[in-house]
Write a protein that binds this DNA or RNA. Structure first.
Lengths: 323, 323
DNA sequence: AATTGTATTTTTGTGCTAGAAAATACGTCA
DNA sequence: TGACGTATTTTCTAGCACAAAAATACAATT
């Protein structure tokens, strides 16, 4: 029986499953987010084909992901009928960020780099040794960091960390870049905020704005800040503009933990975000853009080490958006 | 003699040299460009260390690259002294774009995709078969295309071509994005054009502007156009802004071959470029920004299928930069 | 002291195989 | 007809050995 032989041999030399279905878990999360965006009621049908088309994968991983969601009680499977929204779909809401060796290493590298425990030039082998990770994992993480603009591959075998947002210079660059992008986003034709998302965002921001400066939840404030800017990115109806804004958001998320902004400024910031959202919701995009310009200019001024490197006064006005 | 044995065994099962020193050839080109930026006279010393630091590589590949430049007669080697600028350094000026399997495949894929001979979703194996390339080469090229924003990796084993600049929608997105970025570049503090480069650029543009519309050299015009925009990117003194502008340039370089713009508009375009450079050289950055806005807005209007998708008139003025 | 020349060590890339996962083909059911 | 269930084919990843290339150490020279 060749079959049995093959199977027993497989059992003997069994390896770790290549990625232990981590991709299917990730797909499950993305499908979940995608389902939540749509207005679905318990009992609604979720055809496999829609997911395969939305995520450019075949039915095999989609079925795996849907099965995962079924075991979590979010979907229900009926034989020969497929998957349906389960009763508890709206209730249990765990973002459940999938933990893989990649995400762990990714965070460890960023943490150590921002705290200067890691040199600006590293090799893949060095990282693999230091973090006890396989070479393949290291390369995947480096590839992702490269996409995010954190590292760059040199011609040899070194990877070079770019001056990150913890350097004052890059921070100013980033701010000025956003000062260019984000006000312009509102003026793009087809700019449209997602209604539900805006509602949630406003609720979160309103709560933060009412908080006391002394017991301010820094983490939540930064999350809300980033969610706000990403919402603008998604709304702007321009692929390149959105990509650029999202890239800045990602960089900021890594770096802001080490940045120090006075809580009073953060509370003010939440109020400004609210005002911007309200202007945009009312369709007054010119005003929203103007408010965004003022908001970013105020944040730029509030930076600890902010200096205006000798631009002539005439220019400074234009730069700060006070034209 | 173990040495001989090892050597003969190596000769028997010899493989292709991994990359056949293609990296050293590439490094040689980059070193050459770097040397030309500096004002060097024949006889000047080129210490290895400077190149290792500039390019984040060890001395080994630097020495290889310098040797290559020596065989091309651009450098001179003196024993125990190192490398020196040779007499013919300024003369022979071949850009000598290094031809590797990667560049060939890269161009072939882009060509076939833009002419719709390639589907929007492909697998690495499919590309390897179609172009008779090794899997490794395919993966490297895909990685680069991903960095350039041409493809994206799906969760499964497909790579998805993003709507490229040949689609009208993306073209408009790109144009509007540049309309946001490029005028702002002039207003960044520390904006400074490279004097020599500006001189060369103006010479090239001036020549093109004087040409007859009927015998217009399209290829050279596009090259000059891209060189112009890249020069602005390099001058703007903001890493993120420069990256975004360069990415757009690269995309445009791939796509513009299939774009149709009337020659008359291109000649006008060269004149506008010249005016912008002159304003910037004179230090009138506000005027340069304004001219750039008008230039891009004019190009946007000149696009064949340009439509302003229903933005209200008030907005349209702001969008077109006629505020 | 800094730079080059040379030798040695380390890291990387490639080709290979097997097994895991994805893509796909095809039959079945609503 | 379109969706699901199942089986088959294809593609990918991990791990290994080895040669190529890069990094590095150290001696020699200006």
């Amino acid at each position: 029986m060749p079959r049995t032989t093959a199977r027993s041999r497989a059992a003997k030399t069994r390896r770790q499953p290549t990625r232990g279905n981590a991709t299917q878990a990730a797909l499950a999360e993305r499908i979940l987010g995608w389902l939540r965006q749509q207005d679905l009621k318990p009992g609604d049908h979720v055809p496999e084909r829609l997911a395969t088309e939305a995520f450019h994968v075949s039915r095999t991983p989609v079925r795996g992901a849907l099965t995962l969601l079924t075991t979590r009680g979010l979907l229900e499977r009926r034989d020969q009928r497929g998957y349906f929204i389960a009763a508890g779909f709206d209730a249990a809401d765990q973002p459940a960020a999938v933990e893989t060796p990649e995400t762990t290493l990714h965070d460890a590298i960023l943490r150590d780099r921002f705290s200067k425990r890691l040199d600006a030039e590293v090799t893949a082998a060095h990282l693999a040794r230091r973090y006890h990770a396989s070479r393949a994992v290291v390369l995947r993480v480096l590839g992702r960091l490269q996409k995010d603009g954190v590292v760059e591959r040199a011609l040899g075998q070194r990877w070079v960390f770019l001056p990150a947002l913890d350097s004052l210079r890059s921070q100013e660059d980033s701010h000025r870049f956003r000062l260019i992008l984000e006000p312009a986003a509102f003026l793009q034709p087809g700019f449209a905020l997602d209604a539900r998302r805006t509602r949630d965002l406003k609720a979160a921001l309103g709560e933060l704005a009412r908080q006391d400066a002394r017991h301010f939840d820094l983490k939540r404030a930064l999350d809300a800040d980033i969610a706000f800017h990403e919402a603008i990115a998604d709304a702007c109806n321009n692929r390149f503009l959105a990509d650029a804004m999202r890239q800045q958001s990602r960089l900021r998320r890594f770096a802001t933990t080490s940045m120090q902004v006075p809580p009073a400024r953060l509370i003010e910031s939440c109020r400004e975000h609210l005002a911007i959202l309200e202007a945009a919701e009312a369709g007054d995009f010119v005003r929203a853009a103007e408010l965004m310009r003022e908001h970013l200019a105020a944040s730029l001024r509030a930076r600890p080490g902010f200096v205006n490197r000798g631009a002539p006064p005439m220019l400074r006005a234009a730069l700060m958006g006070a034209r």
